[in-house]
Design a protein around this nucleic acid. Structure first.
Lengths: 361, 361
DNA sequence: GAAAATTGTGCAAACGATTGCCCGGATGCA
DNA sequence: TGCATCCGGGCAATCGTTTGCACAATTTTC
């Protein structure tokens, strides 16, 4: 009773309060509460202190701890735009993964704007984040290396070319291979592709994979039936589909570097009275929310968004805690999910597609 | 040169470093750097100190500041699920709004699980958040009040019944009125509704609005053509649409309490060979990303997600800083965006819909 | 021209936790 | 019994800021 009344006014109990209650020094309490150091104390004392701490609802003051240890248990997460449907599942994974380790994320969106990115990175430094998870990096970005000097970094989903960072990636190559093999197995031979921005590793790697596997499967077009998107969005998907159509060269399927491009492409096809999948099959990449609800429901490569986030979180925590650890590189498997936007090539269809697409010229 | 060499090793410059360089006491530097207190110092000294601080790239140590001031400049954001497409735009608004004021958000998803919510709220307390933005509250939730005692709170999008909290809401009533008036103007008279969970203010308010305006517009059905969803998702939308169909009662339009329910409903209609909008018009609520890309593109009520986040951020910052402020309540205007899922009732259609829906029995 | 009021700055004590160092007592070994 | 060795735990410094108070130097007041 008496002891309880002496608890410091206003706020939560502190080490000092518990020390007073148990009748030991605060340093002893501190040690008792830390698994690492409690071994050096008398077991029954430790027990007693722990119970007192629990009973009083003691929670260490994060600011005090951070000040002393120079670790904030905070990770900065930098993404292009949290409102882009591709990212929330990753963020969710990151948050859950960090929470397991008693870290938290602070996330910010760059809008792909280098200037904003710089401000964000500086702000995160200033905030004292222990590590960074980058989801929006370009393949080459000199600034990032400077701005992150001295802080553990991992990228998710995307990577930089000469990477001093850890990475968590999807199996882009495997995904494209699956999509391509699927189309080939359906009888398609003239397969176009809408490639993503080559400044992103995703865009670059998927395009490279397309070329490689098209070659291997013997369906490579020469010159290539490729349009390059300048961004991963629906508008660019439309534009690229138009670009492919106006060449007048026939094709019966399009492999798109991601779902949003695919959605745009299908819309463009429709404007040209080409139906998907009857006239042209289309595949996406990512399996983002809602693409199963489109009509046609999109055939796409399912990636493990959530798991990627989890992995990234685990890795960054590892890097932060066991400090001099070398970069780790994780590749997550993907799977093809076949829905309505791809269909077996019927005999007449090839012909029809040719006519239609040449009509556009 | 000499002075610079004395900068404390290892890390960023501190007040002490600047004090030494300028030749004053750290408290003077501290005051010079704070607009509030710098007025009490000699202007030219202030100028000198500020320049020195800038030159050395001084950034206040957030942990030290938090420890002393008991303010972390951190806001907790609690949502049902960040991967639900309705929320990211709000989060984005919150983050931008907080960043303007030099605060950051730490966000966590409850999955609608009260137990998880409790853990999250406790963790946020422990982390020392200055305020809380709640996006997932139930209308009645005793626990929340207990767990947030002593911390400024605002809710976004949803509200509690007896709210001691500030709120930022969409004009639910206005939105439903617009949707209903739109359908009526298209000739619809038998209008069903798929209501959201009544435990959420959104579900409750939209349903109440539906009843009220149906009455006012003279299109109220008796008994009501209403199905209650148990969650705001596509599966429940499907289930509810089925539920409406099996009543055998005719209707030509459905107002859904949100977009995801609408998407589910349209899918269910399609399974019963009812086309949207030819046979049945459907409206959603929220205008979440991608619903303009569905076919049919969804007619829905556009709400200001982003702005809601901004407002919530501004409000919570206000509450945190000017402390004894009473709850503020903001209502954001909405607009109807008419797309493809609603259509004028043609003369024959009423009949047809009747036949089809009664066929289901 | 002395007392009083007003500057402008320094001093030092916090905030709450961590951690190197030290010391008293118990134990080990001879 | 004597001396070295542990073991358990206290002491105090420290992390970087903020802020009430003290105090010297100036300015104002009568």
């Amino acid at each position: 009773m008496k002891a309880r009344a002496r608890k410091s006014r206003g706020g939560r109990p502190t080490l000092k309060d518990i020390a007073r209650k148990v009748g030991v020094h605060v340093s002893t309490v501190s040690r008792a509460l830390d698994v690492q150091t409690s071994a050096r104390l008398a077991p029954k004392l430790v027990e007693k202190i722990r119970r007192a701490a629990l009973r009083s609802g003691y929670k260490p003051n994060p600011a005090a701890r951070a000040l002393k240890t120079r670790k904030s248990r905070t990770i900065g997460v930098v993404i292009p735009d949290i409102a882009d449907p591709a990212f929330p599942p990753i963020i969710r994974g990151i948050e859950d993964g960090l929470a397991r380790n008693d870290y938290v994320a602070i996330v910010a969106s760059t809008d792909g704007n280098p200037w904003r990115q710089q401000r964000i990175l500086e702000a995160m430094r200033a905030r004292g984040v222990d590590g960074l998870i980058l989801a929006g990096v370009l393949r080459t970005d000199a600034m990032v290396s400077k701005l992150t000097a001295g802080i553990p970094v991992t990228t998710v989903i995307r990577q930089t070319d000469a990477s001093p960072f850890s990475t968590v990636l999807h199996d882009e190559d495997g995904g494209i291979r699956l999509a391509l093999a699927h189309l080939v197995s359906l009888g398609h031979r003239s397969i176009a592709t809408i490639a993503g921005p080559q400044s992103f590793s995703t865009g670059y790697n998927r395009h490279a994979a397309f070329n490689r596997h098209a070659e291997l499967l013997g369906v490579r077009s020469d010159p290539p039936l490729t349009a390059f998107a300048r961004a991963f969005n629906e508008a660019e998907g439309e534009r690229c589909a138009e670009e492919l159509l106006v060449t007048g060269r026939p094709f019966t399927a399009i492999i798109c570097a991601n779902d949003r491009l695919a959605i745009g492409a299908i819309a463009a096809l429709r404007r040209h009275s080409l139906r998907c999948p009857e006239d042209i099959s289309v595949t996406g990449f990512n399996d983002m929310p809602l693409v199963d609800r489109l009509s046609p429901a999109l055939t796409t490569v399912r990636v493990q968004h959530f798991q990627a986030g989890i992995e990234a979180a685990e890795i960054i925590v590892d890097m932060v805690e066991k400090n001099p650890v070398e970069p780790r590189h994780t590749i997550l498997p993907v799977e093809l999910v076949v829905r309505e936007s791809t269909r077996r090539l019927s005999h007449g269809r090839m012909q029809r597609a040719e006519n239609l697409s040449s009509r556009v010229e």
